[in-house]
């Protein structure tokens, strides 16, 4: 049933021309797939997908279209070629499904290899009831380390592409603009001001409760970042920027990665392998617990700060796009003449 909805949404996106509705629909798509994940017992994934697919990425896309315009050119190039490629690829995949183990069958190979150990022994080896957390943070801790590095890379990449040196007079100008704008949303501001501490608290809860229920560093980071972004939207970018220093966030982003890495190195120095948390305490299980806590903290810090970096840079770019449009144009002309 949910899947049918998903198909409908996806097809609607294909035919829709207005980018704003396309993005809204893709947010819905994210939310629907999150509910599907719940139905499939993947609560952790659902949590993340709801925060990312329906939350952060929709937000980023919306900010992006305010800068790029929201309508799509109706002309499509080579639709038949594209369709042919798609049909061939899809056909191959369908062909591949025929020999797959039946859906939901407990006899499928993936449930026979490797995983039983996680389910049967993770409690005594790691001492954390949420198996997803123990696999994520310990058995396959290196993957998660890679994941943190990926998000760090993205943050740095966006920074490299969008960061702008801002001139002081712009800030003053934007400030006055913001002030006049936010006079009007007094109630909204008060309500959200009251909500903010709760959101932050909830983020912390998700962060440290990941061992027992769904949640963990990544989800917490996203929620934390969402709180800051909400604040920035309501109180103006410059206020937010004054509260949260840019270079401080960059430092935090790196610190998260470093925290993760140094946990690994500590275990290395203790004569064990990289990311072996057993050495962090006399009792290996307690060590695992501590290790997971620390690395989840590292993940949370990096994710939250990178999300904030990405958002601030998008938004900062947008403000500059207005004041600096002519400037950019000149730069481009110069660039063109050179080639």
């Amino acid at each position: 049933m949910l899947l049918a909805f998903l198909v409908a949404v996806a097809l609607a996106i294909v035919s829709m021309k207005d980018l704003f509705s396309v993005i809204m629909l893709s947010g819905i798509y994210g939310l629907l797939s999150a509910s599907f994940f719940v139905a499939m017992d993947a609560v952790d994934v659902a949590f993340t997908e709801a925060a990312v697919g329906a939350g952060i990425s929709t937000l980023l896309m919306l900010v992006a279209i305010t800068m790029t315009g929201r309508s799509e050119d109706p002309d499509r190039h080579k639709p038949f070629l594209a369709l042919a490629v798609v049909v061939v690829t899809g056909g191959l995949l369908i062909y591949g499904t025929f020999d797959m183990p039946a859906f939901g069958s407990a006899q499928a190979p993936i449930h026979q290899q490797v995983v039983p150990r996680y389910i049967q022994h993770s409690m005594e080896e790691i001492g954390v009831p949420n198996i997803v957390t123990s696999v994520l943070a310990s058995y396959r801790g290196f993957d998660t380390f890679g994941e943190v590095v990926v998000i760090f890379t993205a943050g740095m990449g966006v920074l490299a592409l969008l960061s702008v040196a801002r001139r002081p007079e712009d800030i003053a100008e934007i400030d006055s603009l913001n002030d006049s704008m936010h006079e009007q949303h007094l109630i909204l501001r008060i309500v959200s001001k009251m909500l903010l501490p709760f959101i932050l608290l909830f983020a912390l809860y998700v962060q440290f409760h990941g061992d027992y229920g769904p949640g963990g560093g990544f989800q917490a980071g996203v929620i934390f970042a969402a709180a800051i972004i909400l604040y920035a939207m309501l109180f103006g970018m410059s206020t937010a920027r004054r509260v949260i220093n840019q270079s401080f966030i960059q430092l935090l982003a790196a610190a998260g990665v470093l925290l993760y890495g140094s946990v690994g190195i500590v275990s290395l120095l203790e004569g064990k392998n990289f990311l072996d948390y057993g050495v962090l305490s006399d009792d290996p299980v307690a060590g695992q617990h501590l290790g997971i806590l620390l690395i989840e903290l590292g993940v949370g810090i990096t994710v939250a700060s990178v999300m904030v970096i990405i958002f601030f840079n998008f938004a900062g770019r947008r403000e500059n796009a207005h004041s600096g449009e002519e400037n950019e144009m000149q730069n481009n002309n110069r660039g063109n003449n050179k080639t």
């Binding site: 290899q113 490797v114 150990r117 996680y118 310990s138 058995y139 396959r140 801790g141 290196f142 993957d143 275990s267 064990k272 392998n273 990289f274 990311l275 072996d276 948390y277 057993g278």
Partner: peptide, 13 residues
């Protein structure tokens, strides 16, 4: 072969 996290291969990386 180097086992990351000290877990044996098919379980760890």
């Amino acid at each position: 072969v180097y086992e990351l996290g000290g877990w044996k291969a098919p379980w760890g990386i």
